[in-house]
């Protein structure tokens, strides 16, 4: 229970720190926020000047705080608004940042969920088979392949896939998330078009990701196979199949949890690059749009949302892990002293 409180508290602290961090970052921008808003507004309206009162009103609307307030009030208002879910308004799109996120986040989540599931499923299966064939040709060959695939950055794979399968062979679309002439409804055409568009992005993440998982699983499983309790289980008459699944498999998979944690954060972060390459309108795509247009509310908003998503995933995994692996509940209580 103490562990639960501690972890939840830590996650909240992380989120608040990130919000404060974005506030500091906005203040650090070249010229400061005031000049920035003035420039943005004048640019969009073509006006020559703008009075202070209106500037203050605009800054509340877009950035969640008034430029006329003292800095601590600014920070407080900014943080309070964001924690209530108001992320301000995008200069570039003129829409509330929250709406852009609601529109784009499902695409990123869809892409990453499938990628992570496939990466871990393939990696775990392959790693287990490699461990049972340790030293044989299958193992040697796949260890080499895994190490090579693990060395290819996902975006290099993505670029190569775009070149080969989209540009040269035209087997897959080079950009977008769904054919533009389809209404968003759960029709077979729509679903298949979504999957068709997602194939290359998912393939780039999975192909460059499963090798690392397979190597990790292989190492864990080999270690488990050598454990004394595996031998005792054989002597107790436990069938080999059950030992492979319930003993070796399960015990080797559980420590991959740390790799899972890292993968979630890594893939969310990587979506900035991946979605840019495939012009896939998810969170990462809009984050980069925001960056290129120096649209501070949009980029800070998406950054905060990505962080919250990663923090939430890790918190969930962390709190449920103790239930599935009895070995760590002990560790956790030791940590908490």
């Amino acid at each position: 229970m103490r562990y639960f409180v501690k972890r939840v508290g830590q996650s909240l602290l992380t989120i608040v720190s990130v919000v404060v961090f974005t506030f500091v970052m906005i203040r650090q921008m070249p010229g400061g926020p005031l000049a920035y808003i003035r420039a943005q507004v004048m640019q969009s309206r073509g006006a020559d000047s703008i009075d202070m009162a209106e500037l203050s009103k605009l800054s509340v609307d877009y950035m969640n705080y008034s430029v006329n307030d003292p800095i601590h009030v600014q920070l407080f208002n900014y943080t309070a608004q964001i924690l209530q879910g108001d992320l301000g308004r995008s200069f570039n799109y003129g829409e509330p940042v929250g709406e852009i996120i609601l529109k784009s986040a499902p695409w990123t989540i869809f892409l990453l969920t499938i990628s992570i599931i496939l990466t871990f499923a393939i990696g775990i299966l392959l790693g287990a088979v490699m461990a049972y064939q340790e030293g044989e040709r299958f193992d040697t060959a796949w260890t080499g392949v895994s190490m090579f695939l693990n060395s290819v950055p996902y975006f290099v794979a993505a670029l190569l896939f775009v070149y080969v399968f989209a540009i040269q062979l035209s087997w897959f679309p080079a950009s977008g998330n769904v054919a533009s002439n389809l209404d968003s409804a759960l029709t077979p055409q729509y679903v298949s078009s979504v999957l068709y568009h997602a194939t290359l992005p998912i393939a780039s993440l999975v192909l460059t990701g499963f090798g690392g998982i397979a190597l990790g699983m292989r190492g864990n499983a080999i270690k488990e196979i050598g454990e004394e309790y595996i031998r005792v289980a054989h002597l107790r008459g436990v069938p080999g199949r059950r030992i492979a699944i319930r003993y070796v498999g399960r015990n080797a998979v559980l420590p991959l949890y740390t790799q899972f944690m890292i993968s979630v954060g890594f893939m969310f972060g990587g979506s900035v690059i991946l979605e840019q390459i495939f012009a896939y309108p998810g969170l990462g795509y809009y984050l980069l749009e925001g960056i290129n247009a120096r649209d501070y509310p949009l980029m800070m908003g998406i950054f905060i949302v990505i962080t919250v998503a990663v923090v939430a995933c890790i918190l969930f995994a962390d709190l449920t892990y103790g239930m599935i692996d009895p070995r760590v509940s002990d560790e956790a209580s030791r940590e908490a002293y």
């Binding site: 454990e227 004394e228 309790y229 031998r231 005792v232 289980a233 002597l235 319930r246 003993y247 399960r250 015990n251 559980l254 692996d325 009895p326 070995r327």
Partner: peptide, 14 residues
């Protein structure tokens, strides 16, 4: 049979 090191004779996740 009882082996040396009882700790390692049990599966830690059962």
């Amino acid at each position: 049979m009882v082996f040396q090191g009882a700790m390692s004779s049990f599966n830690p996740t059962m």
